[in-house]
């Protein structure tokens, strides 16, 4: 990989733009391709460019039909939006980061969402629904709601359910969740929308400590991302 292409590749990553490095495995020639241009000493024909751009969209690396041209997609990492800068969040954060997520912590309570408690983390002190709207969660985003306070949890869930996030989970016992379901139903949400919420959050492993609860959440997020069918809102909810 030529230094110049490496620098461009890094710059694209910094700008959080999905990009692909395309390599002719026989000659070593390379092209760096994004949605607009193609740089480097490898020339791709129109059809190849279309295929490469499709691969970028699907985040799927692999060889082209000729069997000698390899496409390495550099997608953006998945995101985890955690609402509630609580103790469980402190335990969940390093796990999610290790698993490759960009983590954003949202909590309007500044005493909770402090630099001291979350050094070096992207913190937002906006109201949860506003923060989530600003973050525009997509199908590679997980939303984890942990404040345990309906004033914060409910708006967060409303905004989350209005997105295509692949995972939405909320902390709270079965009883807490039953009350939550009632409130959300009163706000006009249908059963299907409410059913997207994983609650009580996490896989049932009898987690007790904040770290154990974080493990159960991380396991469930992974399970949904890698295995279980994705639940996406119906067309009218997404519109």
């Amino acid at each position: 990989m030529k230094r110049s292409l490496f620098v461009e590749l890094r710059a694209a990553r910094e700008r959080k733009r999905p990009i692909a490095m395309v390599t002719d495995l026989e000659s070593g020639a390379q092209a760096l391709v994004d949605d607009k241009e193609s740089l480097g000493d490898l020339t791709l024909d129109k059809l190849q460019l279309v295929t490469v751009r499709e691969a970028i969209g699907l985040d799927k690396s692999g060889k082209l039909a000729d069997g000698k041209t390899f496409v390495q997609v550099y997608a953006q990492p998945p995101r985890m939006i955690v609402v509630g800068a609580v103790h469980v969040t402190q335990a969940l954060l390093p796990m999610a980061q290790t698993a490759g997520y960009d983590v954003i912590v949202v909590d309007p309570r500044r005493a909770w969402a402090s630099e001291d408690r979350f050094p070096g983390v992207t913190l937002m002190t906006d109201w949860p629904d506003e923060a989530i709207k600003m973050l525009k969660p997509d199908q590679r985003s997980a939303i984890v709601v942990l404040t345990h306070d309906p004033k914060l949890d409910d708006p967060a869930l409303l905004a989350a359910l209005d997105s295509r996030a692949f995972y939405i989970g909320a902390l709270g016992s079965k009883r807490t969740h039953a009350k939550r379901v009632e409130r959300l139903a009163e706000l006009g949400l249908n059963e299907r929308a409410i059913g997207r919420i994983h609650a009580p959050i996490g896989l049932p492993i009898n987690a007790k400590s904040p770290a154990e609860i974080a493990i159960s959440i991380m396991a469930q997020v992974t399970q949904v991302r890698r295995g279980a069918p994705r639940r996406v809102p119906d067309a009218e909810a997404a519109a």
Binding site: R3, R10, P77, Q97, G100, G120, L123
Partner: peptide, 24 residues
């Protein structure tokens, strides 16, 4: 949106960032 120091991002640092540092 507040953006803090680099300490917590270290474990999540991707291979390209490490390569850039090594080259530097």
């Amino acid at each position: 949106m507040a953006r803090g120091g680099e300490s917590m991002t270290e474990p999540n640092e991707d291979i390209l960032s490490v390569a850039a540092r090594w080259l530097e």
